[in-house]
């Protein structure tokens, strides 16, 4: 290239063009550099104490107990430093745990974990945040759906991921699926209010709360009342983690501190909501009153029955059996070996 510039004179204009083009590229390269430095994972920094927890959803009051535990210094006391990786609508949790990118995963529905185990992943469910399933059909109070058969001739909104479950649930409850129009929706309740669907497959702890806040009264039909109860928001790890003494010790310490965090959160929901909003949600426009309401809505699914002395997250034999039956009900194979309370002290 230099030979050419010698043989023929370069016009000023061409010279300027080339140099400024080079300038743009150089500037681009300069602004691009941060990416590479951000790529490295901190695998070495934390050593054995490195504790990443992959959440199923964005940080909000659904995980308040963990945030309270962090805020009250309970994790530091137990010698662990958890780092919460946020989830989202397109987020996948299981691959992160299988590949040891995160130690503990939280999946909203146990059938995802059971399916992964069925296709060869060495995972184990080590605790359940929700002792009862908050899944329900949410309809508007003006046109309530209170029995599965009420849905015949109507439209049910459901995520694609839940379609198979919906078909089986309806069939088992004597609903003719041919008489129901299944509408693929996302997590947002707008189609119900807009009248596009008559009921949506939702969570009692979620859509009814936000709809009520915006002035829409709802009717709720819990699936648990119709043969479909199971644990939800399950905590799971790999079998290697359980076999490794140091790692399982870390998980145990984390869960112990988290149990206390959840107890504190349920004692003082407003305080827990404030911590969640201040530490994790201020920039997202989370509102303390709304988050307090959401936490109150979650409470009945987290709290244990009176007289049940087991620690938080503990999966009773009945709950495990009920979960297995429910999964079997929707064609997902599960057995006792997928669950273990061994890290719950």
């Amino acid at each position: 290239m230099s030979a050419e510039t010698l043989t023929r004179p370069v016009s000023r204009r061409l010279f300027l063009r080339q140099t400024s083009a080079a300038g743009v590229l150089a500037a681009s390269a300069a602004t691009g550099i941060p990416l590479l430095s951000a790529c490295g994972s901190g695998a070495e920094e934390g050593g054995d104490e490195r504790l990443d927890i992959k959440l199923a959803w964005i940080p909000n009051v659904e995980y308040a107990g963990f945030f309270v535990a962090a805020d009250h210094g309970l994790y530091t006391e137990s010698g662990v430093e958890p780092n919460f990786l946020p989830g989202g609508p397109n987020s996948s949790v299981i691959p992160l745990i299988s590949s040891n990118q995160a130690l503990i995963g939280i999946e909203a529905i146990p059938e995802n974990v059971a399916n992964a185990i069925g296709s060869g992943s060495n995972l184990k469910i080590v605790g359940a945040m929700f002792q009862r399933s908050p899944e329900c059909w949410v309809s508007l109070a003006s046109d309530p759906i209170l029995e599965p058969t009420d849905i015949e001739g109507k439209r049910l909104g459901i995520t694609l991921a839940g379609k198979n479950t919906a078909l089986v649930f309806m069939r088992e409850n004597g609903v003719d699926p041919a008489k129901v129009e299944l509408v693929p929706i996302q997590f947002d309740p707008a189609p119900l209010v807009a009248g596009e669907i008559d009921a949506l497959w939702g969570l009692a702890s979620n859509q009814p709360v936000s709809l009520q806040l915006r002035g829409h009264e709802t009717a709720v039909m819990p699936l648990a009342d119709f043969g479909f109860n199971r644990m939800q928001n399950v905590l799971f790890v790999t079998e290697e983690t359980l076999a490794d003494e140091a790692k399982s010790g870390t998980v145990r310490s984390f869960l112990k501190a988290s149990q206390e965090g959840w107890q504190a959160a349920l004692r003082d929901p407003a305080g827990a909501a404030r911590i969640t909003v201040e530490e994790y949600g201020a920039d997202l426009g989370l509102d303390v009153d709304e988050q307090t309401m959401s936490l109150e809505a979650v409470r009945p699914f987290i709290e244990r029955d009176a007289g049940d002395d087991h620690p938080q997250f503990w999966m009773s034999d009945e709950l495990i059996q009920e979960t297995i039956t429910s999964l079997d009900f929707i064609g997902v194979r599960a057995d006792e070996s997928m669950f273990s309370n061994e890290v719950l002290g």
Binding site: I58, L85, P86, G88, V193, N206, S210, R214, D283, G285
Partner: peptide, 27 residues
């Protein structure tokens, strides 16, 4: 924004998920 839908603590996408989830349509 799609990246934020895969998991993020902050950003317009995360704020959007939050607003959609709480049915805050004007937001």
């Amino acid at each position: 924004i799609i990246g934020e839908y895969m998991g993020g603590t902050q950003g317009l996408g995360v704020a959007m998920i939050q607003a959609q989830g709480t049915f805050d349509v004007p937001r």
